[in-house]
């Protein structure tokens, strides 16, 4: 686990260095008249310092004990992929089709439900949310090639 913490610390440190360099380029100004880069620059410096303290706190050999939490990425990764495709569908195909896709893909891909159940829930869900968002609340939803 310590290894992960050190990697975090390094990642934050790199973000801080990048932010500091960019901020310095924007225009630091002076203490009497701070420029647009003044505040972000000092924040980046502070971030670098705290990241270094964080790194130092997790220095040394890894514990023998296994990490408290494991990365179980399969379902979150599938969900993220489905959400990404859903967003594309939202833009190009429209709200209705994208919603139908979201429900079916989620229930099949993430939750391993049967096609019949997935289809049924998707159909009911899509109609219900279309009525709620478009008809009742009259929200602006993306309209693509389809509904």
């Amino acid at each position: 686990m310590k290894k992960w913490q050190r990697i975090n610390a390094l990642a934050f440190f790199l973000v801080a260095v990048f932010a500091a360099v960019k901020a310095a380029g924007i225009g630091f100004g002076s203490f009497e008249s701070p420029g647009p880069g003044f505040f972000p620059f000092w924040l980046a410096v502070l971030l670098a310092v705290v990241a270094a303290v964080y790194y130092a706190a997790y220095r040394g050999a890894d514990e023998a004990a296994p990490p408290r939490k494991y990365w179980r990425l399969r379902r979150p990764a599938i969900a993220a992929a489905i959400m990404f495709v859903f967003l594309q569908a939202l833009e190009y195909l429209g709200f209705g089709t994208a919603t139908l896709f979201l429900f079916v893909a989620w229930l099949r891909g993430v939750e391993k439900q049967r096609w019949l159940k997935a289809g049924l829930v998707a159909a009911i869900g899509t109609v219900s949310f279309y009525v709620l968002f478009v008809v009742l609340l009259q929200l602006t939803v993306p309209r693509g090639l389809l509904i």
């Binding site: 939202l90 989620w106 229930l107 869900g125 929200l139």
Partner: peptide
Amino acid sequence: YAILAPIVVLICSVGVYSIKNNVTDVL
């Protein structure tokens, strides 16, 4: 939760989209 999760995704997406009508914000 299997049904709840996509509903939350949908509500969040529509909520964020409705601010500026922009799918990039949802991304």
